[in-house]
C-alpha cells in the first residue's frame, strides 16, 4: 500500500519535472528540472528492489552528468541565447509525432494480452534482490562471462570518451585568438 503511495508521488514529480524541462526558458532551469526527474526515478528504483541502481542514478547521473551539463551552461555565458525563440511553429508540429509515439506505446502496453505478459513473476522477496552483493556476484562471478567483458569494454569507452572530449575542446583553447570568438575564415 505504502509502495503505491510512494510510487504515485514519485511518478507525478517525475512527470512534472520532465514537463519542466520541456517548457523552461533557461537551460539552467531545465537542468534543475532534470535533476528533479532523475532523483524521482531513483526513488522509484529503490521501490522496485534496485537500491544499488538508485544510488548509482543519483551519484553518477544526477551528480556527475547533469553537473557537467550545468558547468558547460555556465561556461557559455551566451547560453541564454536571446536569438533562439523558446517555441515556434515547428514546436507545435513536433508535439504530434511525440504524442502519437506515446499513444501507440501505451496502446501496445495496455492491449489485450498485456496483463498476461506483464504479470509479476518474481518469487524472491523484493528487498533481497538488487543489492550490491547480488549484482557483483552476477557481474564478476566465478565464470569469466559476457558481463565482465562488457564491464571492461565500458571502461574503455569511458576512457575514449574523456580523451575525445578533451581533444575536441582543447583544439579551440589552443588557438591564439580569443576562445569565444571564431577566427575569420573559420577554423
Amino acid at each position: 500500500m505504502i509502495t503505491q503511495v510512494y510510487f504515485w508521488i514519485f511518478s507525478i514529480v517525475a512527470l512534472a519535472t520532465a514537463l519542466g524541462v520541456l517548457v523552461s526558458r533557461h537551460p539552467i532551469h531545465a537542468a534543475l528540472c532534470l535533476i528533479g526527474t532523475m532523483v524521482s526515478l531513483a526513488g522509484i528504483y529503490s521501490l522496485v528492489a534496485a537500491p544499488f541502481l538508485a544510488t548509482l542514478q543519483i551519484l553518477v547521473y544526477a551528480g556527475a552528468v547533469v553537473m557537467l551539463l550545468v558547468f558547460v551552461i555556465m561556461v557559455l555565458n551566451s547560453a541564454k541565447d536571446d536569438h533562439t525563440p523558446r517555441w515556434d511553429a515547428f514546436g507545435w508540429a513536433a508535439l504530434a509525432p511525440s504524442a502519437a509515439t506515446g499513444f501507440f506505446l501505451l496502446r501496445v502496453l495496455l492491449g489485450a494480452d498485456a496483463a498476461h505478459s506483464f504479470a509479476l513473476r518474481s518469487t524472491d522477496p523484493p528487498a533481497a534482490r538488487g543489492t550490491v552483493e547480488a549484482l557483483s556476484a552476477l557481474l564478476f562471478g566465478d565464470r569469466i562471462g559476457a558481463w565482465s567483458f562488457l564491464f571492461l569494454v565500458v571502461g574503455l569507452l569511458l576512457l575514449s570518451a574523456v580523451v575525445g572530449a578533451v581533444l575536441l575542446a582543447k583544439h579551440h583553447l589552443d588557438s591564439p585568438s580569443a576562445p569565444s570568438t571564431p577566427r575569420p575564415g573559420g577554423h
Binding site: 509525432p97 511525440s98 502519437a100 509515439t101 501507440f104 506505446l105 496502446r107 501496445v108 492491449g111 489485450a112
Partner: peptide, 17 residues
C-alpha cells in the same frame, strides 16, 4: 525519422484490438 518510428509503431499496434 520520428514519423517513420510512428509508422512502425502503428504497424506493430495493428493487431491489438
Amino acid at each position: 525519422s520520428v514519423l517513420g518510428l510512428v509508422a512502425l509503431l502503428i504497424l506493430l499496434a495493428r493487431n491489438i484490438p
